[in-house]
Design a protein around this nucleic acid. Structure first.
Length: 637
RNA sequence: GCUCAUGUAGCUCAGUAGGUAGAGCACACCCUUGGUAAGGGUGAGGUCACCGGUUCAAAUCCGGUCAUGAGCUCCA
């Protein structure tokens, strides 16, 4: 009796009895056997030394594959856990998965890990790699495994095994004296981990991601195939840090934040100039897509927020203020205000959809630990809109919104938008039937628009499900910008009505929608996405005129007047400084265009244009430059 | 909110072991009118986040508060 395996190139290979991937690799070449780290058997990864069933398709996994990188990261987590338990025997291990670019492991220990501990742990990990311990899979009886971990004082591991599905095999991996519950697979020995890893930070994390459960200490690390890849990654992190909107906001003099107003933004003239451009752009979108701009009050009596459901579901995030024995809530959302405007008149079905929009200032009392630059703040302005419509109109409205939103993102230079659908949360108002209807309505609209989306169970707003548009920041964190939310509950709560063709009063559906989301966050993302090099139409100061000598001052004034007459914002630098100094300063402030003027330019009625990011200069006729700049600084819609 | 770290001049950062604060840039004044990323000189500028404690003496050690950063939880 013999067994046969199929190889990726279609060839098959015969053996007397089932063998491991290592032996298959050995038959192909000595070199491959040496490089084999794991095997993909019928598409599933397994350890390289395990016997493989007859008839399987076998692929040898070598270091250069993505699968190998996963194994390396996973092993790094295990080796780190081994190092930690050797150095700090009072530590319990919990879970240690791989993540993008690396891995982490959550530990339970009374004493905190210090940054110095990280260095010590990293050194010990290198020792373990040098020891070259074999990593071997063992399958255990469930109860024995539980008893083993309880006996070792590993309560968290025991709990994990207890909660494993009954039909799942309990596999442990042993390397040296360290043994850990793990599904596997792993590298065959610790030396295969190599030297491309580094521990990066310690942070708190909750057991099972639950804030009411034990607080664990999470150690993060990054791991790569070798030192070179690691260094490239670290370099990339450094580059990303240079795009940080907090750093650029300071360097470009856009805004600042200070202790007395945590989570709030002080906009400087240049930052506010960007805001104005975004606002002008969005206002045009409002008009072009059938919205009427409105404005509601900033604070309203709590009774209204009790009716809307915010009091019950959102209270801990709201600010309150008192006057003459009445309590007011500072608005965290604009929707109740817009419903009041809608309710101020009786509407006919003929008038629907009615679309209101507002640059609505909101205050939310976010947990202090959640604040982040201008991306996550306590006071922000939404490009908020509410559509009052019939159920039949929902799909068309959502589809139209989606198209509009994508067009806006494209104009601002964003391409990789991910679309998510957040479904009913635990804490919610409304019946299950209403939620079914709302969720399916959004699904229909999305598939109608031909979009790929990801569903997020439990993440909807308390009043309805939402479609979310996400973008990543400079260090890869995703932020929600736009959203459109289906809400049949709020009209009910706040008694919004329209009169149908039979003179009957009906409830409209309400759609909440925002494209840029929060102006603050959007500008933060813009800064990071463009690394501060904003396109001409968005740049706070698109053009600076810099003179070489005072003799050109009058000409500079003429150029400035011409540009301003053509609608171009321009600043003039007539200081008694060398041109190199001026160019440096304005380049660092990320001014996209510097017009350098000297006697030559004046005589020829020209300007020397220097663009940000280029050393080259081009000299063109003044009138031509004015026309071109006027064109390039105009809103793209 | 939780865990860890951080908080010194407008900005970026030094400040070794407790002995009363320093640099560069920016700013002010003077000289320099110079062709594309820093021309030179002089000067002013700090309750070392805040409150309390230890000490003859605290930026430095201890405790608390606030803020910031990273992560967790939560969210536009």
């Amino acid at each position: 009796m013999s067994v046969s395996y199929r190889l990726p190139d279609g060839a098959s290979m015969e053996f007397e009895q089932p063998v491991s991937a290592l032996e298959i690799a050995g038959r192909i070449s000595k070199k491959l056997a040496k490089q084999a780290l794991a095997a993909k058997v019928n598409g599933n990864l397994i350890d390289v030394y395990l016997p493989i069933d007859d008839g399987a398709t076998v692929e040898i996994i070598t270091r250069d594959t993505d699968d190998a990188l996963e194994l390396i990261r996973h092993d790094a987590a295990h080796v780190m856990a081994e190092a930690v338990q050797e150095l700090f025997p009072d530590t319990q291990v919990t879970i240690g998965p791989t993540i993008e670019n690396g891995f982490y492991y959550d530990f339970h220990r009374a004493e905190p890990f210090t940054p110095d501990d990280l260095k010590t742990i990293e050194k010990r990990m290198q020792d373990i790699v040098r020891r070259n311990e074999d990593i071997r899979r063992e399958v255990w009886d469930r109860d024995e495994a539980i008893a083993f971990f309880l006996n070792a004082g590993e309560e968290f591991k025991a709990e994990i095994i207890r909660d494993l599905p009954a039909d799942q095999e309990v596999s442990l991996y042993r390397q040296g004296d360290f043994i850990d519950l793990c599904r596997g697979p792993h590298l065959p020995s610790t030396s295969k981990l190599g030297d491309g890893f580094k521990l990066t930070k310690v942070a708190g994390a909750y057991w099972r991601g639950d804030a009411t459960k034990a607080q664990l200490q999470r150690i993060y690390g990054t791991a790569w195939r070798d030192k070179k890849e690691l260094n490239a990654y670290l370099k990339q992190l450094e580059e990303a840090a240079k795009r940080d909107h907090r750093k650029l906001g300071k360097e470009m003099d856009l805004f600042h934040q200070q202790e007395e107003a945590p989570g709030m933004v002080f906009w400087h003239p240049r930052g506010w100039a960007i805001w104005q451009k975004v606002e002008q752009y969005v206002r045009k979108v409002y008009r072009d897509s059938g919205y009427q701009e409105v404005r509601g009050p900033q604070i309203m009596d709590v009774s209204l927020w009790k009716r809307s459901g915010h009091w019950d579901n959102y209270q801990e995030n709201m600010f309150f203020t008192e006057s003459e024995k009445r309590t007011y809530a500072v608005k965290p959302m604009n929707c109740p205000g817009h419903v009041q405007i809608y309710n101020a008149a009786l509407h006919s079905y003929r008038d629907l959809p009615i679309r209101y929009a507002e640059f609505g200032g909101c205050h939310r009392n976010e947990p202090s630990g959640a604040l982040h630059g201008i991306m996550r703040v306590r006071a922000f302005t939404q490009d908020d809109g509410h559509i009052f419509c019939t159920e039949d109109q929902v799909e068309a409205e959502v589809t139209a919104f989606h198209k509009q939103a994508m067009a806006v993102y494209a104009d601002f230079g964003f391409e990789n938008i991910s679309v998510k659908l957040a479904l009913r949360p635990d804490k919610r108002i409304g019946t299950d039937e209403a939620w079914d209807k709302a969720e399916n309505g959004l699904r229909a609209a999305l598939s109608n628009a031909g979009v790929q989306w990801e569903e997020l169970p439990g993440e909807g707003a308390f009043y309805g499900p939402k479609i979310e548009y996400h973008l990543k920041d400079s260090i890869g964190r995703a932020w929600q910008m736009g959203t459109v939310q289906f809400d049949p509950m709020m009209p009910e709560r706040l008694d919004a009505e329209y009169v149908d063709e039979n003179s009957q009063r009906q409830r409209p559906i309400m759609l909440h929608r925002a494209i840029v989301g929060s102006m603050e966050r959007f500008i933060g993302i813009l800064i990071e996405h463009h690394a501060g090099h904003l396109p001409l139409w968005l740049a706070p100061v698109p053009v600076v005129i810099a003179t070489i000598t005072n003799a050109a001052d009058d000409y500079a004034r003429t150029v400035k007047a011409k540009l301003e007459a053509a609608g171009v914002t321009v600043e003039m630098d007539l200081r008694n400084e060398k041109i190199g100094y001026k160019v440096r300063e304005h380049s660092r402030a990320k001014v996209p265009v510097i017009l350098v003027l000297g006697k030559q330019e004046e005589e020829e009625q020209q300007v020397a244009i220097r663009r940000l990011g280029s050393q080259a200069t081009e000299t063109v006729a003044l009138d031509e430059a004015v026309a071109n700049l006027a064109d390039a600084t105009r809103l793209p819609i």
